[in-house]
């Protein structure tokens, strides 16, 4: 049955990488160890019977105050099998993840957004800088300890252009 195909093939090839396989509402989510991320994604993309060639989404979740704190979620789609797969990786605060932007070009901007919102750095990313917020912004908004209104909300907003500073 396709439902377990990716999971079974992964467990066969990388037995120490797979931590958990969950099924919820018809979707499959496989939690893997951080060190094996690139190999697992390459395998899922290149293996002919699986062919998960499209990275649909990449995001992070903050489980503050749990440890490890962050979870990276990769959502893959296979055109051949017409199936979706969620790959989850736990990342602690201060750890860096490996960039997959050479495997999936879509990851270039998606990883920049994760860095912008959570502060998770990606090794070997071609251009890791903020994408949605301005470069002078301090803090990572989607972390749970960042207030919704941001810092300095009580002060009236003023903007000075570069020539005036």
């Amino acid at each position: 049955m396709d439902r377990c195909l990716a999971g079974d093939l992964l467990k066969g090839k990388f037995p120490e990488a797979v931590e958990k396989i969950e099924y919820f509402r018809g979707d499959t989510a496989i939690t893997i160890r951080r060190e094996f991320l690139r190999e697992v994604l390459c395998f899922l993309k290149d293996k002919e019977s699986l062919n998960y060639e499209m990275l649909v989404d990449l995001t992070g979740v903050d489980f503050f105050p749990a440890d490890p704190r962050f979870m990276l979620v990769y959502l893959l789609h296979s055109m051949k099998l017409n199936k979706r797969l969620l790959i989850k990786v736990w990342i602690g605060e201060g750890d860096t993840a490996e960039s997959v932007s050479d495997i999936f070009r879509a990851a270039e901007w998606l990883e920049r957004e994760v860095f912008d919102m959570f502060g998770i750095k990606f090794k070997h990313h071609p251009d890791l800088r903020r994408i949605l917020l301005s470069d002078e912004f301090s803090g990572y908004p989607l972390r749970k300890d960042f207030p919704l209104e941001g810092h300095d909300f009580a002060k009236p907003f003023s903007v000075l252009l570069e020539e005036e500073r």
Partner: peptide, 13 residues
Amino acid sequence: FRTYNVVQGVDQI
């Protein structure tokens, strides 16, 4: 949008 990146009214500028 009472959030960290939104100016609360253009009359602040």
